[in-house]
């Protein structure tokens, strides 16, 4: 399994994706800086306390990397069916389930790592800068940080399974646009921040979506050795 995953990484040149993730981080950070400076223009405070800072970081990284994962699913899974390279893969003496599972694992693990690293990176850098500029009023307590760490790691975990949901729509016609559009819809649902209210904060919703994602991943694998590849 590990070997198959390594082959996938080699085949799709994972370095390109790592670079993409890094660029996304820089852009998110730029956004946060812009938002921190906006109060001086129109008198509304975007970051009224540290909870909001963390929830912004959470929403931005999850949103970015759920779509990122959809792009990866498109390349790793759906494009293989589209370009018929899947026929080559399925003619290797390897169980089909294992081949697809390896692909999904790569996407899940890569997404999770990306989200965790991005959250850590953005929080650290932002807090360091804040220490000098004092964008955010209030005090950063240890309990708050611990609370947020738990919440954000839970969100990261649910997000990387949620990211598999677009696979269901994409696999029906092996369409890359469908995959990405459905991931955007998921992001709109779970990452929209409407006046402090976020659908993802109702604990049952991310859990259900993550279960749905895992189920879709499982369904994609389960019957794969029974189907005809044309």
């Amino acid at each position: 399994m590990i070997k198959l995953m390594k082959l996938e990484l080699r085949k799709f040149k994972i370095m390109g994706y790592i670079r993409g993730a890094a660029i996304a981080n820089v852009i998110i950070f730029g956004f946060m800086m812009l938002m921190s400076y906006s109060p001086e223009i129109d008198d509304t405070m975007v970051f009224e306390d540290f909870t909001v800072v963390f929830s912004m970081i959470d929403v931005f990284t999850r949103g970015t990397f759920i779509i990122f994962a959809a792009v990866m699913l498109g390349r790793f899974v759906i494009d293989e069916f589209n370009s018929k390279t899947i026929t080559v893969l399925f003619m290797y003496p390897i169980k089909r389930q294992k081949i697809i599972a390896a692909k999904l694992m790569v996407v899940i693990i890569f997404t999770f790592i990306c989200i965790v690293i991005s959250m850590t990176f953005l929080s650290t850098v932002y807090l360091i800068i804040n220490a000098f500029t004092h964008f955010v009023p209030g005090e950063l307590t240890m309990t708050l940080v611990m609370q947020q760490v738990v919440k954000l790691s839970f969100n990261a975990l649910s997000a990387c399974f949620m990211a598999l949901i677009p696979l269901y729509f994409g696999m029906r016609k092996y369409s890359l646009p469908t995959t990405i559009v459905s991931s955007v819809i998921i992001v709109l649902l779970t990452c929209a921040n409407n006046g402090g209210f976020n659908l993802n904060d109702i604990i049952i919703i991310p859990i259900l979506l993550a279960i749905a994602g895992a189920a879709i991943g499982y369904m994609a694998i389960r019957k794969i050795d029974q189907i005809d590849i044309n």
Partner: peptide, 16 residues
Amino acid sequence: YHFLGRMGTIIEYPVF
């Protein structure tokens, strides 16, 4: 699928 390891194939047209 084990038998596939003893085969070499081009089906339809060569894909890479």
